[in-house]
C-alpha cells in the first residue's frame, strides 16, 4: 500500500504544486491520478520514487517512509513507465528490458532470459529483441517500456501518462493489455493521466486533482460518475457521464425474451433482421461479460431496436426489448 500523509510540495519560488495531499493507493489495485495540467498529479507520482522530494508530510510504502530509503535503491524496487517510453536508444530491446536486473547485479544470461520472457508477456515478437528502439513503432516502444518496468518484478509500478503519445487505436489496445497483465500480476499501480475516459477505464480507484495540487475527489469510477463531489469534478467528467456510468453495470440481470421469427439465424447464430422484405442490421451483446452500455449500444444498432443477446460462442440466447432495457437503465438512474 502507498500512503500519502499530508504531503506538500512547495518550490523555492513559492509555487505550491501539491497541497496537503492525503490518500491511499491499495495494494494490488490500479489507482489513477487524473486532472488538468498543473494539478500536481505528476509531481505527486514522482514523489513516490523520490524523483522529487516532498517539502512536508510523509509518503509510506507498505508503512516505510520513502525518505528513509536511499533513492537509487528505492527506484530499483519500483517500476516506472513514462510517456515517450524513455528507452535507451543505444541499447538493443533485450538489454533495455534488462536494465534494472543489470543494475541489481544479475548475471547477463539470467537478465536476458528474464527480458525475453517479458517481451512475450507484453505481447511482442521475440524477434524484436535484437532491434534498437528506433526500429520499433510508438506502440511497440511503449510495450517495451512496460516490460522494462516489470523486469525485476517490483511490487509497485508508477506510470506517468504512458499511453498519451500514441494514436487512439494503439492506446486502446495498450489499455486492454495493461488490464490483462494486471489481472495476472496484481501490482500496486499508480497511473497518471489527463484523460478522464482512460482513468475511468483503468482505475480501481480514481483520484481527481484540481489545479493547485488539491484532491477534489477519490472514489471508485462508478461512484465518481454517479456522485461527483462538486462542480469541478462534474465539469471534468464531461457531458456524457450518464451513459458512461452504464459501463459499470453488468447486463447479466436483464430479462430476455425468446427471439422473434424475423431474426434470421444460421447455425444458431444471428445474421440479421428480415424486415420490409430485406435483411437489416442487428446489434448483439453478451449478458455474461458485457455492461448495460453494450446492451444499449446493441439496441441502437439494431434496425428494430431489439438487442440480440448471444453467448460466448455467438449463439442466440434471446432478445432484449426496448421496454426491458428502459427499465434496467431507469433502475440505474434511480440508484
Amino acid at each position: 500500500m502507498i500512503t500519502f500523509d499530508g504531503v506538500t510540495k512547495r518550490y523555492a519560488d513559492g509555487t505550491v504544486a501539491v497541497d496537503n495531499l492525503s490518500l491511499e493507493a491499495a495494494s494490488g489495485t490500479i489507482t489513477v491520478f487524473v486532472g488538468p495540467s498543473g494539478c500536481g498529479k505528476t509531481t505527486s507520482l514522482r514523489m513516490i520514487n523520490r524523483m522529487i522530494d516532498a517539502t512536508a508530510g510523509r509518503i509510506l510504502l507498505d508503512g516505510q517512509d520513502v525518505k528513509a530509503i536511499e533513492p537509487a535503491t528505492l527506484r530499483r524496487g519500483i517500476g516506472y513507465v513514462i510517456q515517450q517510453a524513455g528507452l535507451f536508444p543505444h541499447r538493443r530491446i533485450v538489454d533495455n528490458i534488462a536494465t534494472v536486473p543489470y543494475l541489481l547485479g544479475w548475471d547477463r544470461k539470467k537478465a536476458r532470459a528474464r527480458a525475453m520472457e517479458l517481451l512475450e508477456r507484453v505481447g511482442l515478437d521475440p524477434k524484436l529483441a535484437r532491434r534498437y528502439p528506433f526500429q520499433l513503432s510508438g506502440g511497440q516502444q511503449q510495450r517495451v517500456g512496460v516490460a522494462r518496468a516489470l523486469a525485476a518484478d517490483p511490487p509497485v509500478l508508477l506510470m506517468d501518462e504512458p499511453f498519451s503519445a500514441v494514436d487512439p487505436v494503439v492506446r486502446a489496445s495498450l489499455q486492454e493489455e495493461l488490464l490483462r497483465l494486471q489481472s495476472e500480476l496484481h501490482k500496486t499501480i499508480v497511473f497518471v493521466t489527463h484523460d478522464i475516459d482512460e482513468a475511468v477505464k483503468l482505475g480501481d480507484t480514481v483520484a481527481v486533482f484540481r489545479v493547485g495540487g488539491h484532491l477534489a475527489q477519490i472514489s471508485d469510477p462508478a461512484t465518481l460518475l454517479s456522485e461527483p463531489a462538486d462542480d469541478f469534478v462534474r465539469g471534468f467528467l464531461g457531458r456524457d457521464r450518464g451513459i458512461r456510468r452504464l459501463s459499470f453495470i453488468p447486463a447479466a440481470d436483464v430479462p430476455l425474451s425468446p427471439p422473434p421469427p424475423e431474426l434470421v439465424l444460421a447455425e444458431g447464430k444471428p445474421v440479421g433482421w428480415k424486415l420490409d422484405g430485406g435483411l437489416r442490421p442487428y446489434g448483439s451483446f453478451n449478458p455474461a461479460t458485457d455492461s448495460l452500455r453494450a446492451a444499449l449500444d446493441a439496441s441502437l444498432l439494431s434496425a428494430n431496436g431489439l438487442a440480440v443477446a448471444v453467448d460466448g460462442d455467438g449463439g442466440v440466447l434471446g432478445v432484449l426489448g426496448r421496454d426491458a432495457l428502459d427499465a434496467a437503465v431507469s433502475g440505474v438512474a434511480r440508484g
Binding site: N49, M51, P71, A72, T73, L74, R75, R76, Y80, I82, Q83, Q84, A85, G86, L87, F88, P89, H90, T99, V100, L103, R148, L158
Partner: peptide, 29 residues
C-alpha cells in the same frame, strides 16, 4: 541526450556516475 531518456535512467535507479558512463556518454558519442 533526450530528457525523457535521462529521466527514465534516474527512475530506473542509475546513480550519477554509472548514468554518465552507460547512458549519457554513449548517446553523446
Amino acid at each position: 541526450v533526450p530528457d525523457h531518456v535521462r529521466q527514465s535512467a534516474v527512475a530506473m535507479g542509475f546513480r550519477p556516475l554509472r548514468r554518465l558512463l552507460q547512458v549519457e556518454l554513449p548517446i553523446a558519442t
